[in-house]
């Protein structure tokens, strides 16, 4: 893989071996350009999440070099990971509470972030009073509130039902088109990655590395018509085949 100009995330030969001897990543190379929306697609336990944690600086690579913008990164976990003892507004304001700098006044930024994910009227509600999809939207609002250059998402919609998942996919695309931030999105769903992205990185099982790179040159905005088109089905088949090759043809 050749390095790209203007890459804001760049991993070179990154390996990660845990203390228990499990090699999660080995020789992982990837480049992500400013403003791109890139899914890391692979089977469960292929080290995708580990790669994301290394990019975020939450974990250290045991080999290779990782370059990513320091600070001002948004992160969305598989679970909403909200503070249950505070309101939606309090949760979204957390980065500011912990001293993160925003581009604007914190109050206004929180209100804007909540509005963006359609949670304005639930600002004073506690997480347990809302549905799983709403909690996930709050987690996205929290990640976006500091207007980060880089948004990292670790299978954020895996625990949600399909209807909610489709909705949040659309919401996420709308936000991405509006803000044009760089998004790295870990998923094990072929359909989700094709729907969302311009370029998919297919990973091998553990130890994970990039097996294939598939471009999805379809213009945005994408909607339900794209989701039901033959073109979409074609890409899904292509990505599915790549994924099954990555897994050694077993699947």
């Amino acid at each position: 893989m050749t390095p790209r100009d203007g890459a804001i995330v760049s991993l070179r030969g990154v390996g990660k071996t845990f203390e228990n001897g499990v090699a999660a990543l080995d020789g992982l190379n990837l480049d992500i350009a400013e403003g791109e929306f890139v899914p890391l697609l692979g089977p469960s336990g292929c080290g995708k999440s580990t790669a994301l944690r290394i990019i975020a600086g939450l974990s250290e690579a045991s080999a290779g070099a990782a370059a990513a913008p320091a600070g001002n990164i948004g992160f969305v976990f598989q679970d909403p990971t909200l503070l249950p003892w505070t309101t939606m507004a309090g949760n979204v304001a957390l980065p500011f509470t912990l001293g993160a700098a925003g581009n604007s006044e914190p109050h206004a930024a929180v209100a804007r972030a909540l509005a963006r994910v359609a949670l304005s009227e639930f600002a004073e509600a506690y997480p347990r009073e809302l549905s799983g999809g709403m909690r996930m939207r709050a987690a996205i609002a929290r990640a976006l509130v500091t207007e980060p250059r880089l948004l990292l998402m670790d299978e954020p919609f895996a625990a949600l039902d399909e209807i909610t998942r489709f909705r949040l996919n659309n919401d996420l695309l709308a936000v991405w088109q509006e803000l044009r931030r760089t998004v790295v999105f870990v998923t094990h769903s072929v359909f989700e990655s094709v729907y969302l992205s311009q370029r998919i990185l297919v990973m091998t099982p553990r130890p994970g590395r990039v097996f294939a790179e598939i471009a999805i040159p379809v213009s945005y905005p994408r909607d339900e018509r794209f989701r039901t088109s033959a073109e979409y089905a074609g890409y899904c088949r292509q990505v599915s085949d790549a994924l099954s090759h990555a897994m050694g043809g077993a699947a």
């Binding site: 600086g57 976990f77 990971t81």
Partner: peptide, 27 residues
């Protein structure tokens, strides 16, 4: 305390004191 919340606090560079006051004690 939830490990992901601890990670989140690390991501926002929370101090030890903030970690205790805003995360561990309420949890």
């Amino acid at each position: 305390v939830d490990h992901n919340l601890v990670s989140l606090f690390h991501l926002y560079k929370a101090s030890r004191w903030q970690m205790l006051l805003h995360l561990k004690l309420p949890a």
